[in-house]
Structures are given as C-alpha cells and as structure tokens.
Amino acid sequence: MTRKSMAAILLLCCLIIPAFSNGQGESNFPNRPVQNVFPWSPGSTYAASQVVANAMAENMGTTMSVTSTTGAGGVKAAMTVMSKPADGYTVFDAYVAPLILAPLFGKADYTFEDWKPLYGVASNAFTIVVRKDDERFPDLTALIEYAKAHPGELKYCAGGDVSLPHMAAASLLKNTGAVTRHVPYNDTNEGIKDMLAGELDFDIMNSGGYQTFKDDVRILAVLSDLPQPAFPGQPLAKDFGYCIGLDGLAATGWTWWVVHKDTPDDITEILRTALKEALDDPKVQKSLSDMGYLPMPTDVYSPENYTEECTIMTAQLKSALAAIEWEKEEIKKY
C-alpha cells in the first residue's frame, strides 16, 4: 500500500520534471525546438514576437518558444542567452533597452558588438496622449504652450526613468523648452490609470497601450518622423513644427534578434534565412501591423547593416540622455 502511494508520488515527479527540462542531442540544426528569450513580461510585444517566432520556426521545420525572462531592464535575459551554449538554439529578442541602453549606462558588461545579428524585426512608435475630455489641450501646440506658460506644473508619465519613451519625450520637450515633471512608472499602463484619475496631465504610450485605452485617451501626436500605419490619420510631431531631435528608429522601440557571438556561421545562416523569409512574408507583416507594430524592412535592417545602425542609434540616444539631464535640472527650479 505504502509502495503504491510512493509509486503515485514518483509518477507525479516524472510528470512534472519533464515540463521544465529541454531535450538534448545534436545532429542537423535544428533538431529540437529553438528558444526565443524575451526580456519583458508577456504582453502585446510578447504576442508580436510569438507571431514572428512561429513563422520563423515553420521555415526551419521546428518550433520556437518565446520565453519571458524579466529583470534588470532586460539585462538578465541578455545574460541568460550569453550563458547558454552558442549552438543557435537560443535567440535573444534584443530590445533597445538591453541591447543599447544598458551598455550605454554601464549597466551591462557587453555591447551590441558582442552579439551576432540576425535581422531587425519590428518597431513601435510612441505617442503623446491626454485624457479624451481634457479641454486644455486640443492639440500638441496647446500642450507645449501651456507647459511653457506654467513651467513645472504639468506632470507626465513615460514609463520608467531614462527609458526609451522618456528619452523621446524629453528630447521633444527640451527642443521646445517646455519644463514638465516626469513621474516614473515601470508599467506605463499604471501611469495611464493615474492620468485618467487626473493625477497626471499627459502620457507617452506605445501602440499596444493605445489600443487598450483608445476609448479614454486622445492622441496629440505620434513621436516619430516615420509614417505610422498603426495610427492612421494621427499627426506626427513634425506636423506641428516640432523636432523630436531623434531620427528614424531612434525615437521608437524596436527589437533586433541576435544570437551568441560564437554561434557557428552555418547555423547562423540557417537562422537568418528563416527569419528573413518570415519577415518578408506579407501575412506576418500584416499581423504585426494589425498589432500596431511597424515591421522593419529586411533590406535596411540586415545583418550587414547591424553595426552601422546600432552605432547611429547609440549616438542619438546619448543626445537624448542629455535631454533627460536637462529636464531634471530644470524641474529642480520649481
């Protein structure tokens, strides 16, 4: 009887343990599922990565799971990938924060050059939004003029401190000379809640956030100078004559899938081909656009252009950092 129940418990162990383990064994790549290490918690960006991962895996005749490994602003995910064998079975979903920002601030002991690039996958622009019924701000000009007339009074949320949306917002605000107070929220949606409750005046949100709250918020402008299919008919910042101070993708969030630097060339090539094919697929592009993401063209954001693009963005983000420092200095006066 005791033996029976022991057997039952052991059986349970057997059931649970495989759920956590990965199969082993090598021959022709890929002969087991590939893993995409995603640096954020599951949400709309996670779904976008899953769409691309599914298409890519299909091209390689395997499956690809998107594993959320959060912590340390994405650096934990990066370190996880670095610690795995360089066999191509682990792909890093390298968002700007872990790939460029963290090394820029000395939060990571790698740089973007320590990775082997596949392709740039998707970007999402940020928008500046207010409460739908906020009559003070009919458009972006009204908001900027109000902020200039009442320096230090307006409060806004652009995600965490020194995050990408914060950089885009601070650059715009510095260029216009408007002094406002940034209240950091790790989850931008929590910031939107406080804006809707009247604690904050405006908010910087990405397309995923906008889709969720579009009944309650109104877009003043899209913070990008690239056309944005996710926000049809919405004005860009430059339409009001304002300059964000960041060009192209630098003002937006994006991910460039990369692998461990020591991954063999033939395996990297298989991954690149599969990813390129997935990204060039109109169906994948359509799903990404529907979710509010801008697919990155594979001819521009190709492995060959990786170093150049990343270098340009690093330089631009450095200037955005200066804008945040300016904001912090100015707000102290009020």
């Binding site: 340390a72 650096v75 601030f105 965490g160």
Partner: peptide, 22 residues
C-alpha cells in the same frame, strides 16, 4: 535587492548577476 525601480541602478547585488533581478 536588484534593480532600482526608477533609476536603473543595481542595489545590494554585490556585483553579481545572480542578484540583479532581485
């Protein structure tokens, strides 16, 4: 322990990546 929620600095991690995520 782990990353400061606002300032993206590491706190009490003693330089290890093990504690970086808290």
């Amino acid at each position: 322990i782990g990353m400061d929620p606002f300032m993206s600095n590491f706190r009490f991690t003693f330089g290890t990546i093990a504690l970086a995520g808290g």
